[in-house]
Amino acid sequence: MPDPTADPTAGHEPELLTITEAADVLRAPVATLRYWRHLGTGPTSFRLGRRVLYRRADLRTWIDAQADRAPSR
């Protein structure tokens, strides 16, 4: 029987990603994410204190939207 006091997110991917972690997921330079953030064209991000964070689900949604916009070959 699972331990009810155990952290339910233990062993899973984190929900919130730093800009460096998001860049790794997207395989893009951090500078590119900063530029997209400046233009307002990249994945949804937000500030928590001084940190810029991305929700993993928002990255996936943005990736899917980019794939849908790409011309099919």
Rank of each mutant, 00 (worst) to 15 (best):
H12N: 10
T41P: 05
V25M: 11
Y35G: 03
R27L: 13
R51N: 06
R34S: 10
T44H: 10
R51S: 13
D24C: 05
D7V: 04
R51Y: 10
T9D: 04
T5N: 13
P29T: 05
I19H: 08
E15T: 04
T44I: 10
P14L: 12
A57Y: 04
V30P: 00
R37P: 00
T32W: 08
R73H: 12
L59W: 13
A65M: 07
A31L: 14
V25D: 02
A57L: 14
A10N: 02
V52T: 11
R60K: 08
D68P: 03
A28R: 10
E21A: 11
T5A: 15
R50I: 05
P71M: 02
D58F: 13
A10M: 06
P4N: 10
T18C: 03
P2Q: 12
A6K: 08
H38T: 13
T18P: 04
L17W: 07
G42Y: 09
V25P: 04
W62H: 04
Q66G: 04
A6Y: 01
R50M: 12
R73W: 04
T32F: 09
P2F: 07
A67C: 01
H38W: 15
D7E: 13
V25Y: 11
P71L: 03
A67W: 00
T61G: 00
A10P: 01
T20C: 09
M1F: 13
T44F: 09
A70V: 00
R50A: 14
R27T: 12
D24H: 02
A70C: 01
A67D: 00
L59I: 12
D3C: 13
H38Q: 15
P4T: 04
L53N: 03
A23I: 06
T41Q: 04
A6F: 01
G11Y: 13
A10I: 02
D64L: 00
R56H: 13
R37E: 06
V30H: 01
M1Y: 08
P4F: 02
A10Q: 07
A70Q: 00
T32M: 10
P2W: 07
A70Y: 00
Q66D: 02
I19M: 11
Y54E: 08
E15P: 03
H12P: 03
D24Q: 12
D3M: 08
L53S: 07
D7G: 03
R27N: 14
P2D: 10
R27G: 14
W36K: 01
R56K: 08
S45D: 03
P43W: 05
P29N: 08
T5D: 15
A65Y: 06
A67Y: 00
L17E: 08
L33P: 07
A23T: 07
W36C: 01
G11I: 06
V30K: 02
A23K: 05
P8R: 10
M1P: 04
H38L: 14
T5R: 15
P71V: 05
L16D: 06
T9Q: 05
G42L: 11
P8E: 13
D68R: 15
P14E: 11
P14N: 14
